[in-house]
């Protein structure tokens, strides 16, 4: 393993994050606060409790997941798309590094930033509602795995995208709906039975459910399925990336 290279890529990418640190922090804090005003206060005042948890607290895991997922994807895709766009990717491709090292460097940095934002949201939420975390270690593990797997997914989008529009396309058309319909703001048991079945095909449901379990000890689907879903998704992304580097698809001429 070329550890120096991994470190160099990671630090270089993190430096990019810290150059725009205020943008990176202010916008999630602001949007989280807005969600609380709208969902927590306005709607929450009419919904007392969901599964024994106050509505305001109930949406916290979903909110964190929403941001963690969108941030992981956008960081992961931008991190590799930008060097492709300005041409500096030549340097990584001609260096003595293999695809695993490249991925650890870029995806690690993208996931770190998403993780930071997840934590910032948790802290912000704490100002609005009382939050109890029943399984803190599981909570951290879930968040970490989610950030990593979606940063991997973003990395694939970044390699696939040929322009900035495409870079936005997948997150906008596929990921945002899946996340919103993934039970971030409601329990799927609140849906009619037919929709509950449909929802089970949405992978985000498993993530949000598992994550919420780590907070309140209640879940929509069994914990095992949540873990399996996230691991399967990670493996799928890793396989795709392995194939991309083996064939040079969209990165080598």
């Amino acid at each position: 393993m070329n550890w120096h290279a991994i470190r160099a890529i990671y630090l270089f990418e993190m430096a990019r994050t810290f150059r725009t640190i205020w943008q990176s922090i202010v916008s999630p804090v602001l949007s989280t606060s807005l969600y609380f005003v709208v969902f927590g206060t306005a709607i929450g005042s009419r919904i007392d409790e969901v599964e024994g948890v106050s509505y305001g607290a109930f949406i916290v895991p979903g909110l964190i997941m929403l941001s963690a997922i969108t941030q992981s994807i956008s960081n992961g895709s931008f991190g590799i798309y930008f060097p492709k766009f300005v041409g500096t990717i030549y340097e990584v491709l001609s260096a003595p590094v293999n695809f695993i090292e490249i991925v650890i460097g870029y995806v690690g940095a993208a996931a770190t930033k998403a993780l930071m934002i997840g934590v910032i949201i948790l802290i912000t939420a704490n100002f609005f509602v009382d939050i109890r975390i029943e399984h803190p270690l599981a909570m951290i593990a879930f968040l970490l795995l989610t950030c990593l797997s979606f940063a991997l997914f973003g990395f694939i989008i970044g390699i696939w995208a040929k322009n900035f529009e495409q870079l936005q396309l997948v997150p906008l058309l596929i990921v945002t709906p899946l996340v919103f319909l993934g039970g971030s703001f409601y329990s799927i048991s609140m849906l009619p039975p037919a929709w509950q079945t449909v929802t089970l095909f949405n992978p985000v449901v498993y993530l949000v459910s598992g994550f919420r379990w780590s907070f309140f000890g209640v879940a929509d689907v069994a914990l095992g399925w949540s873990l399996l879903a996230i691991l399967a998704f990670t493996c799928l992304c890793l396989t795709a990336i392995w194939w991309i580097f083996r064939t040079g698809w969209r990165i080598k001429t």
């Binding site: 470190r7 160099a8 890529i9 270089f12 340097e91 260096a95 590094v97």
Partner: peptide, 13 residues
Amino acid sequence: NTVRLSRGLFGLP
């Protein structure tokens, strides 16, 4: 910083 990245990519401190 960019020169440092280049050196790092080649496995050098």
